[in-house]
Amino acid sequence: MMGVEFVPLSLTPLLIGIFAAIACALPGNFLVLRRQALIGDAISHVVLPGIVVAFLLTGTVSAAPMLLGAAGAAVLAVVMIEAIRRLGGIEPGAAMGLTFTTLFAAGVLLLEQSDTSGVHLDVEHALYGNLESLIWLDATGWQSLLDFTALAALPVELFRVTAALIGVTAFLWVFWRPLTLSTFDEGFAQTLGLRTSAIGLALVIVAAIAAVAAFDAVGSIIVIAMFICPPAAARLMTNRLEVQIAWSVVFAIASAVLGYVFAGYGPLWIGFENAVSAAGMIATVSGVILALTAFFGPCRARLGTPAA
C-alpha cells in the first residue's frame, strides 16, 4: 500500500519535469539548427527581469502577467541583440552574451531590492526552481485521479507547463513548413513570400512562453539545459529533421526521469544521506547524454551537414 500511495506524490514533480523538458527542447531544435542556440540561454536569463517587472507592476505572480512580462523581455532582448550586432559591428554570439548577462544581472538586482518576502520569488528559486516541493498533497492513492476535490489541489505548475507544451506543439505543427524553409534556406523562403523575420520572432516568443512556464517550477538551470542539450544530442543522431525532433523528445524525457531519480536516490546509493537538487541533476544528465552522443553518435563526424 505504501508504494501505491507514494506513486501519486512523486509522479507530479516528475511529470512537471518531463513536460518542461519537452516544451523547451522542441523549439530548441530550430534554435540549434539556426545556429542561435545561445538565444535559448538568453531567453532563460531575460525571463527573470520580465517576471520581476510583471510582479512589481501587478503585485501578483499569476500566470498571465508573468507570460506577458517574459514575452516582452524576450522581444526586448532580440531588439537589443540586433541593435548591438548592427551598430557595434560585433558577431552575434558576443551580442547575445552581452544582452543576456546584462538583463539577468538587472533582474537579480531588482529581486534583491524588491519586497518579495510574501511570495515564492527569489534568486535561489530563479536558479533551481522548486520541483521537489510540487507534490500532490491531497492524493491518497490512485483513486484520487477520480476525486475532483483532490484534483483541484494539483500544483498549478502542472497545468501551466502542460498548457505551454500543448501550445508549443501546436505552433510547430501549424507553422512546420515556414519554420523549416526559413531555417534551412532563408533566401528561398523569402522568394516564396514568407516573412522570415516575423517567423524568427515568433519562434523566440514561443520559446519564451515555454521558458516562463517552466521557470517557476524548475528554474533557469533546466531551461538552459533543455533548450540546448537534447536538440544538440539529437542532431548528432540523425540528419533528418523529423527524426531529430523525436530524438530530442526521447533525450528530454530520459534527462528528466533519470535526473529526478538520481537526485532523490543517487546519494543514498553511494552512502550520502541528503538528496541533491533535482534541477541540477536533470541538467547534468542532459549534459552526459550530449557527451555520449558526441563520442558515439552516428552523425558526429558530419555535424555540419544540414538536416533534411
Rank of each mutant, 00 (worst) to 15 (best):
L151G: 07
A256D: 12
I18T: 11
Y265T: 09
A275V: 02
A202I: 01
A214M: 07
F100T: 01
W247V: 02
D115I: 06
I289T: 09
I209D: 02
M2Y: 15
L146T: 15
N130H: 08
D185G: 05
E91R: 15
A307L: 06
V156D: 15
A283I: 03
L258H: 06
L137F: 12
S44K: 03
C229D: 14
W176Y: 14
V261P: 00
A70H: 12
A279H: 05
D115C: 00
T102F: 13
G187T: 07
A263W: 04
L154Q: 14
G118M: 12
S220D: 01
A256H: 09
A163S: 12
V168G: 02
A232S: 15
G17C: 04
L14F: 14
A163V: 10
T102L: 04
M226L: 06
A278S: 15
A263Y: 08
F171Y: 12
G297D: 04
I199S: 01
I135L: 13
L76H: 03
L134F: 11
V288Q: 08
N274A: 10
V204Q: 06
G280V: 11
F159C: 00
E91I: 07
V156N: 09
L131D: 14
S144K: 03
F215M: 12
L292N: 08
G72N: 08
W142L: 13
E157V: 07
A213N: 06
L98V: 09
G3S: 13
L181C: 03
M226I: 04
A37M: 05
L33R: 13
I228Q: 01
A150H: 08
M281S: 13
A207F: 08
R300Q: 01
A37W: 08
L111Q: 11
V250K: 01
R35E: 09
F148Q: 07
A42I: 05
T140C: 02
I205K: 04
P92C: 05
I245N: 14
M66A: 15
T162D: 05
C299Y: 10
P155D: 13
A275I: 02
P155R: 12
M226A: 12
G17S: 11
L165K: 01
A23G: 10
I222W: 08
G219Q: 09
P298A: 03
I209A: 14
S117T: 15
M66C: 10
S44R: 00
S44F: 04
F215L: 03
G72F: 10
L154W: 12
F227Y: 11
F6S: 03
